[in-house]
Amino acid sequence: MIDPRTRLFLVTAVGVLAICLEQPGALGALVLATLLPLAVLRVPGVWWRRGVIGVLTIVWSTVLSQGLFYAEQPRVALVELGPLVLWREGVRWGLVQSLRFVAVSLAGLGLAVSTSPDRLYAAMLRLRVPFGLALMATTALRMVPAVGQELWTVRRARAARGRPAWRRAPWRWLALEVGLLRPVVARAWRRAHALAESLDARGFDPLAPRAVRRPLRMGALDGGIVVGVGLVTATVVALRVLYLLYVGEVLYVPALRGVYGFVRGWL
């Protein structure tokens, strides 16, 4: 098993990479890389199916909406269907945005389904994350699947009672969409409260050292992963920083032109 600290590190790395990468190809590779641990975790088939449908829906809807409504210049038509034009730059932008979102979501989801809150706690506290932050992060992660399920239930409950058509009453529609979060947030708050009480009642003390039945142990695999992924992430960040300094006309090193070109074309 991979140490929870390594897992946290991986999720952080995915987040950093998602910010630093701008090419759809690179982000696509990142998404594939985040799928790898999920494959190892043997997530049940039904979740895979839902996940694939979810990912495709997010990517497709973002790409389509961005592709259709892209207004920046210059833009190049990819497909022209009468008055409807799918703009290539919009598709690209939609792809970038949705792939970023998917990569980070998948990494978070992987952490949520594979790591129990107590292990995460232990890891975060060992990493000297403040208690409050650790609790919030753990609770949030733990709630990802449950909140998803609840949001779905709320939408069903609303659909059964009728929903305002977007065209007929856009403001009502929007207000309702926001309102749908109300019960989910209320429920999430109660759940967080219950978890906090449970932890406290079981003697959890963020400040005191605690015995661990299964101590956190970073093995060779963890070391390998941290070093490998860390190197890749640090390299990407460094490259992006160098590139930003270059395009920001702050620092230009002629010898690094190949690097600049690589970042522009591939990252």
Partner: peptide
């Protein structure tokens, strides 16, 4: 909502670890 651990053993062990 009161579960804090990922396995039955860890769940039971949590309070003992605290102690």
């Amino acid at each position: 909502d009161q579960l804090v651990a990922g396995t039955v053993a860890d769940e039971l062990a949590f309070a003992m670890e605290s102690a």
